[in-house]
């Protein structure tokens, strides 16, 4: 999933300080799962903003709405009426959702309430970690299912570097050495021969080096 975290309240307050009617829009997808921008977080932010504004003696009108999916025109359309009654939209989706709202409602300021972080998985309840860098050309088949691009601090395709110690990365005891994980898994799979096959310099075009990326599926286009 795409993970995100709420921006500091002060920054959000600053960004909406000139508006009187604010529409807060959540998303039912990834940001709900990582507890950053679902219906509940929309409620919490609305309540926090309401109190902050009351305290500042400048009460505002806050409207809460959570879409099924904020990165999809079909769902974003249903906001039309609410948007008409708002001076600004505060999006609690990832950057994709923020941009979709901005695209659909051109004359309305759309402000992000979240910082979009990374594509990751839940390690345990309340902890998410980066897993995929979206490089466009997956190598997990030869790295034992552990991504060196997303999970090695130096993005080494032929690791580990000399800073690996006790299974941890030199940058922090909190970070596993991706190449230790890869090696352990290759051993478990009986595929250690894969390790000595050097990985060639990566073509970064599918990773975005070729410009902003798109996928076109002719069978699905209208």
């Amino acid at each position: 999933m795409i993970t995100a975290e709420r921006k500091p309240l002060e920054e959000i307050l600053q960004s909406v300080s000139s508006f009187d009617r604010i529409l807060i829009v959540g998303c039912n997808e990834c940001v709900t799962v990582c507890a950053a921008g679902g219906r509940k977080e929309v409620g919490l932010l609305a309540s926090a903003l309401n109190m902050s504004m009351l305290k500042a003696g400048r009460p505002v009108q806050l409207t809460e709405h959570t879409l099924e999916r904020q990165c999809d025109p079909e769902y974003v359309d249903e906001l039309a009426q609410l948007v008409t009654g708002a001076d600004a939209i505060l999006s609690m989706a990832c950057g994709c959702g923020v941009q979709e709202l901005a695209r659909r409602y051109r004359d309305k300021p759309v402000l992000p309430a979240l910082n979009t972080k990374f594509m990751g998985a839940a390690e345990r309840p309340g902890v998410w970690a980066e897993r995929c860098a979206g490089c466009g050309n997956c190598v997990l088949g030869v790295t034992g299912g552990i991504c060196p691009i997303a999970r090695c601090s130096k993005r080494l395709m032929n690791g580990p570097c000399g800073g690996s110690g006790n299974g941890k990365c030199e940058i922090s005891d909190e970070v596993d050495c991706a190449w230790q994980l890869i090696w352990d898994r290759l051993k478990a799979l009986g595929k250690t021969d894969l390790y000595e096959q050097n990985m060639d310099a990566k073509d970064w075009r599918p990773a975005g080096g070729g410009g902003p990326r798109r996928i076109v599926r002719e069978d699905l286009t209208e």
Binding site: S153, K154, R155, L156, M157, N158, G159, C161, G163, E170, I171, N198, M199, D200, A201, K202, W204
Partner: peptide, 26 residues
């Protein structure tokens, strides 16, 4: 490959790592 920027005086700098040390040798 170089020490990680975390240890230096520009920890805010982007890490390039277009290629790694083995690929540089090649």
């Amino acid at each position: 490959s170089g020490d990680h920027p975390k240890f230096g005086d520009h920890p805010m700098a982007a890490n390039v790592h277009d290629i790694d040390s083995v690929q540089l040798i090649k």
